[in-house]
């Protein structure tokens, strides 16, 4: 299935644009999310990614250094990236 690319700047506007894409991509397989370009992530993006992990077959997230660092700082590294990282 297609991989959803995260833009470098994942602010509110980006998350608003990504949400319908995430919903449309739900299926029997885990969502594949490529966050390797993501340099800036806010709470809205973390919530979107957590929601994707929780929904259906879950999600597999490839994280950039910045995204991983943000996840770690927020205490969400395991919840977002463990057990199925791309």
């Amino acid at each position: 299935m297609a991989t959803i690319q995260l833009p470098p700047r994942c602010d509110r506007a980006a998350v608003a644009a990504l949400l319908p894409e995430f919903r449309a991509a739900q299926g029997n397989e885990p969502l594949r999310i490529d966050g390797s370009a993501c340099q800036q992530a806010g709470q809205a993006l973390l919530q979107l990614l957590l929601s994707a992990r929780r929904t259906g077959a879950g999600a597999v997230i490839a994280a950039s250094g910045a995204l991983r660092e943000t996840a770690r700082m927020a205490g969400l590294e395991a919840a977002l990236l463990e057990g199925g990282e791309a």
């Binding site: 998350v15 919530q47 957590l50």
Partner: peptide
């Protein structure tokens, strides 16, 4: 955090 269908990412 709810599932995607119920998510409002700005809450």
């Amino acid at each position: 955090v709810p599932e995607l269908d119920a998510l409002d990412p700005f809450q």
